[in-house]
Amino acid sequence: MKQRVWDLPTRLFHWTLVVVVALAWWSAETDQQDLHLYLGYGALSLLLFRIGWGLFGSSTARFSSFVRGPSSVAKYVRARFNWPLAGHAPLGALSVLALLAMLFIMVGTGLFASDEDGLFSGPLAYLVSVDVADLLTELHEELFNVLLVLIGLHVAAILLYRLALGKNLLGPMITGKADLAPGVEPMRPGKWWVALICLVVAIAITRWIIGGAPPFGT
């Protein structure tokens, strides 16, 4: 019998972020700078929501349930990739944390970025010098390659688990449910109103950071 593993807010965050990142790449490649900026704001709101939901959400969404030290990773490997809790296993947690950290860095550098002509800039570019803005712009662009590597590793791990270990990690992120081994604790759901508060706070913080409206130029 399938049991709940991922709550709806976590799944919506995951797939919305996938779409936002893909569109952000497309908008940058096609020089849709205004759309790219708005997508960056959306990504920031999503990431801030995930922080809040990671603190106060369902059991599998909480960082306290899957952020583990090296000893837990070693124990997980010795146990032949079996873990007594639903949700992220120790190795998967490392992938999730790396992706979240990289996305935060990319969004952060984008807020201070500015184009070569200074005609289009992030909302916080005025806080730094032109040289620093140029450096952050270059870093913002180069780090996307690192993000692609992390995404590739993430997808490769999903395929490896499916082909080598027979574990379907993709399905539960769509349906929210999975077949759990005996003794594995299923998800303890969070409150819907907590998710709503996390979302409202995330959007409010984003609007505070950007000053309420995207600046087109300096």
Rank of each mutant, 00 (worst) to 15 (best):
H14S: 01
H14G: 02
H14I: 01
H14M: 01
H14R: 02
H14K: 01
W15C: 00
W15Y: 00
T16C: 02
T16N: 01
T16F: 06
T16W: 04
T16G: 13
T16P: 00
L17A: 06
L17W: 05
V18K: 00
V18D: 00
V19I: 13
V19G: 07
V19M: 08
V19T: 11
V20N: 02
V20A: 11
V20Q: 06
V20S: 05
V20L: 14
V21W: 12
V21I: 15
V21G: 09
V21A: 08
V21P: 09
V21M: 11
A22S: 06
L23T: 07
L23K: 07
L23C: 08
L23S: 11
A24L: 06
A24P: 04
A24I: 03
A24H: 04
A24C: 07
W25Y: 15
W26Q: 10
W26G: 05
W26H: 10
W26M: 08
W26V: 08
S27W: 12
S27F: 09
S27C: 05
S27A: 14
S27Q: 09
A28I: 10
A28P: 12
A28H: 14
A28F: 12
A28W: 13
A28K: 14
E29W: 15
E29Y: 14
E29I: 06
E29S: 13
E29N: 14
T30P: 04
T30F: 08
D31V: 09
D31T: 12
D31P: 11
D31A: 14
D31R: 15
D31Q: 15
Q32N: 12
Q32W: 09
Q32G: 04
Q32Y: 08
Q32I: 01
Q33Y: 15
D34R: 15
D34Y: 12
H36G: 05
H36F: 02
H36S: 03
H36E: 04
H36P: 11
L37G: 15
L37Q: 15
Y38N: 10
Y38L: 13
Y38D: 10
Y38A: 07
Y38R: 03
L39S: 05
L39V: 06
L39E: 03
L39D: 02
G40K: 11
G40P: 15
G40L: 03
G40Q: 10
G40N: 11
Y41V: 04
Y41W: 04
Y41I: 01
Y41Q: 02
Y41C: 11
G42W: 07
G42R: 04
G42T: 06
G42E: 08
G42F: 08
A43H: 08
A43M: 09
A43R: 14
A43I: 03
L44F: 06
L44A: 09
L44P: 04
